[in-house]
Write a protein that binds this DNA or RNA. Sequence first.
RNA 1: GCCGUUGUAGCUCAGUGGUAGAGCACUUCCUUGGUAAGGAAGAGGUCGUGAGUUCAAUUCUCAUCAACGGCUCCA
Length: 643
Amino acid sequence: MISIQFPDGAVRQYETGITALGIARQISEGLARKVLAANVNGETWDATRPIHTDATLQLLTWNDDGGKQTFWHSSAHLLAEAVEQTFPGVKFWVGPSIEKGFYYDMDLGDRKITEEDLKNLEKKMNELARQSNPYLRKEISKAEAVDYFREKGDEYKLDLLSNLEDGSITFYTQGQFTDLCRGPHIPDTGFIKAIHLSGIAGAYWKGDEKNKMLTRVYGITFPQQKELDEYLVMMEEAKKRDHRKLGKELGIYTMNEDVGPGLILWMPNGTVIIEELEKLAKETETAAGYKRVVTPHIAKENLYLTSGHLPYYADSMFPPMQMDGETYYLKAMNCPHHHKIYDAEPRSYRDLPYRIAEYGTCYRYEQSGELFGLMRVRCLHMNDAHIYCSKEQFRDEFKAVNDMYLKYFKIFGIEKYVMRLSLHDPEKLGQKYINEPELWKETEELVRNVLIETGVPFVEVKGEGAFYGPKIDVQIWSAIGREFTLATNQVDFAQPRSFNLRFTNKSNEPEIPLIIHRAPLGTHERFIGFLLEHYAGKFPVWLAPVQVKVLPISDKYIDYAAGVEQLLRRAGIRVEIDDRQEKIGKKIRDTELMKIPYMLIVGEKEQQDGLVSVRRQGMGDVGSETLDVFTQRIRQEVENREG
RNA sequence: GCCGUUGUAGCUCAGUGGUAGAGCACUUCCUUGGUAAGGAAGAGGUCGUGAGUUCAAUUCUCAUCAACGGCUCCA
């Protein structure tokens, strides 16, 4: 007999060799039908694997992350079985579960999988699933495993095997398909009731672009058809919120082939948002003691040699221009220009912290395959600023920047975020990172301590620092689950040295300042892309390109409507009038679709009594009031940046 | 940059080896209508670009550009 301890602390005795599934069955048949895997002593196991020792046990179902992951991993095996039957001789690499579903990487030789094939593969997977084939686990010696895949001619699995220790190797077989796999798996394929293969893509073997490109098939499966249907509906909804779709529909931005890829043309509606964001940033920064500067878009080569951008990041800069025998570059960063402003006058400790801000325009030559709507572009407008301070001031300055982030998050209703402390990789000193091992250690420690002191939740990532120092990236998620690096907050100990920046300290000695690079609102491009998805295009009134639309019931009331429009415009409200010869229902519909926050409907009643009939986007008719009352209310809403 | 898919009217999309079609939007006319689509007529495209095959290419082939789905990258 063995003792099994359940998550609620209860301990029960079972026959040695009982399986998690067996235990579930003793509890209830219904539970047994739902068990996908089990957590045994902290390890995820097959529900069908015999337990021979005392253990803690948690049964995993679809409602547990571990259950889902197992389900999807088993689905990947099912996909592989279907692929092997359809494309004999295919070689497989790996097929893990991912956040939403699974994929399998494979080498199909000269053959290609088409969209048509996906449909057939889905069909075949469904057939195989209905056979309810068990996933059979087998421990196997390394030699046997090598023989198996050598015979199959699968060099990818042989490569996997070469990294595994004898004695730890298991095979899983379901139906006709056997795979090298650590497991665990669901009891049998019959659990998989709904299958959707979502795409084909290329993926480098081992994620290295020097390696061969394999074919990756993505899919997602569910234990019930209903859940797949819901998932597909959700995907459709997400598509509607895509910033590229909304950006076009709402006249926010456009792109043009003649202008070039990754170069955004901001239309009037988008420009309103830009100006509102800049207004917010300028207010906030001025209040926090920043001064504003303006710098040119280009500079001579030497500036970027000094800054270190050219030796490290020449590939990501636009190619140089020759002029008057000099070489010029478009700026990829604002910092070198700002450093020159710092350095334009002698600085004393009394001048510090010296904070300068600019909505700077930068140009980066992003690889063509990386361009993505507003999120990855080649010309960007950064909410940039640099803080030059002494070591003693660093903590307070860093914290103040942090507070600014939190203030913005509140305004925009951003609740889910994570700060990532990106550190250097000592092995890449001198290549990816400036070769100053001591300084790296020192500043990383400094930043980590500040983060701990200020109590901000963060994770550490090795090998993702900037070349001039550690950085903190702020990850946020848009409403459709897309992850962004919104903002960045970086420490720079390299450039103050390379630019030979100094200040005179209290002891009348030259001292090197520290620099904080920060961009809480990231770039206009990425931030507005995020906001579009975050708000689903329904901007709060203060950001809405058009805040009010005046809708006359008929031509007879256009004069009154025009008067309303005039008064609102004089009150600083962005207002338009819809004087088309359309019925009011049509005008309302079109205005709703444009997601304009307020509609003022005016007809005979309103004209007689000097009223407006107010309609709030998404809420319908909210009653009539005088124009004065309305104006006051909307102005307040704008001023407080509500929403 | 790499793999794959796509490119037809302002938008969404159909279609064909014999120089193109729908809905919405647009223009004009009728209608003057009270809270999410009134009616009619009209205008609009050298079918992404370049080359090849063909009597003939928007359609087939190749190249190229761009967008999209991924991979790699992202100071």
